[in-house]
Write a protein that binds this DNA or RNA. Structure first.
Lengths: 264, 264
DNA sequence: TCGGGGACGATTGTATTCAATCGAGGTAGA
DNA sequence: TCTACCTCGATTGAATACAATCGTCCCCGA
């Protein structure tokens, strides 16, 4: 008998590692320096999460070269877990690598950003439809909780946290679909969207969360068609907002230096 | 810029071990043995490709545990590149891992398979539309070349090769879209579809490649709408074929059924 | 006989060390 | 002065060695 490894589903939804949130605020790019994460024992998964967060926050600018040694110093681990993390990020499309030439942060031009939104527009309604049929009460509860947290954040005008809550909302929504593949796809997609939106998203925050509430209502009602439709509208609004953005701001200017709090 | 991982190689060299003789039915192959792949210098990227191919071909059955040492012995490298490969496959959704518990091949039930097809149905027409507008003559040439190769394979009734050509076709089609993100998504998706279809889909091959030719024609004409429409039809046909399959044998039961055939 | 606790083996996770490759810069020659 | 070649430094890629963790099995006690 092979005793085949449990794996009871759960596409790993962010284990609550305290995310070096300390350096919020300033968030100057590029200048690597402080270890930022010295606690003795970190896993490769966490390193990938840390690097991903930093990419999304603009700490590592698009096109920037990521030397393994520098990363290993920054995150306080050896090169081995760093390399593993880079492979993960490569598969996710955050970095590109060439043999013996190292890895660099991917560059997202406007066309890519548009594509991301277009892809999302086609996938999320699908997931929402599934979610309306399959969501568990617990998932519904988490979504509602996120709505409340967002209300607070809105009231306090903490936009950085809002961005995180937004990603999280769409992540949970994807999980509620009950499809492993769909969840993974949409989750990775939501990370990338957060990246692209790093600058723009806060502006639309208010409307966005009103729409989120509608989504939850549709899920609660268990109406797949309505859920899909509401999500589609939501995405379309987001697309419109992105296209209306002031300047071509797809790069890593300081925007939304959100705290990296990782409460799940 | 080519984005690493050239995919120039081909793995059919070791195809001889596929199927493991008539020993189908008896699940739990697991005990891989012969090195099958000793050539001196392989890179981590190639290892991930090798493992992925073996998963798709059913050499590693769904749910099977993948011990690092066993893999490193099988593919003739140390554990380090194996681990990197596993991180890649994890991000792609082919395996699932838990800290200190190792890695196991993911399990795709019928619902997941349906979702995969649904997702593809929504993404590929998008890519095809882009491709019709942006495809380069070189890409068009490669697609045509694939059509010819498929003709040969059809004539000679080499279904295993057809499966590979099929994946390759959709890969190139995605590349022609000019969108990095879309390319990566659709490519990874096509791998998974090949996996799901490996057991099923006896031979829709003939129709499938006729539709492929239509796709190429639309691309050549540079007509985005028509391209998207043709691809949508193509996917819909594939879905129909899948749903019409003889038995519901898409789960992890038998796993390592002989040669991998996937036609879309 | 059955349940709980602890030690052992096996496997994963990480660090350290060594080898291979690429790019930059300098030097010799035309 | 320009070009080609070559040497050297730096960085990536891989292998080996070490530490941490988990599951299992055995022993002990009720």
């Amino acid at each position: 008998m092979k005793s085949g490894v449990g794996h009871t589903g759960s596409t790993e939804g962010a284990a609550g590692t305290a995310g070096a949130g300390g350096a919020a605020g300033a968030a100057q790019p590029a200048d690597v320096a402080e270890p930022a994460r010295k606690p003795g024992r970190v896993s490769a998964h966490e390193v990938s999460r840390a690097i991903r967060d930093d990419i999304i926050r603009g700490v590592h600018a698009p096109g920037a070269r990521l030397a393994e040694e520098a990363l290993s110093a920054r995150y306080g681990v050896s090169r081995v877990p760093v390399r593993e993390a880079l492979r993960t990020l490569e598969a996710e499309g955050f970095v590109r690598s060439r043999p013996y030439a190292g890895v660099a942060v991917a560059e997202l031009d406007d066309a890519e950003a548009e594509d991301l939104l277009e892809i999302r527009a086609r996938l999320e309604p699908l997931g929402a439809g599934r979610a309306a049929a399959r969501r568990t009460p617990e998932q519904l509860g988490r979504l509602k909780e996120l709505l409340l947290l967002a209300d607070d954040a809105l009231a306090a005008d903490r936009l950085g946290e809002l961005a995180r809550l937004n990603s999280r909302f769409h992540e949970v929504l994807a999980q509620a679909s009950g499809s492993q593949t769909l969840t993974q796809l949409v989750t990775q997609l939501s990370w990338k969207i957060a990246w692209v939106y790093a600058v723009e998203l806060p502006r639309r925050a208010d409307d966005s969360w009103r729409e989120h509430a509608e989504i939850v209502a549709a899920l609660e009602a268990g109406d797949p068609d309505r859920a899909a439709k509401v999500v589609a509208k939501h995405i379309a609004q987001a697309q419109k907002a992105y296209r209306r953005r002031p300047s071509g701001a797809a790069d890593a200017s300081g925007g939304a230096a959100g705290s990296a709090e990782s409460e799940t």
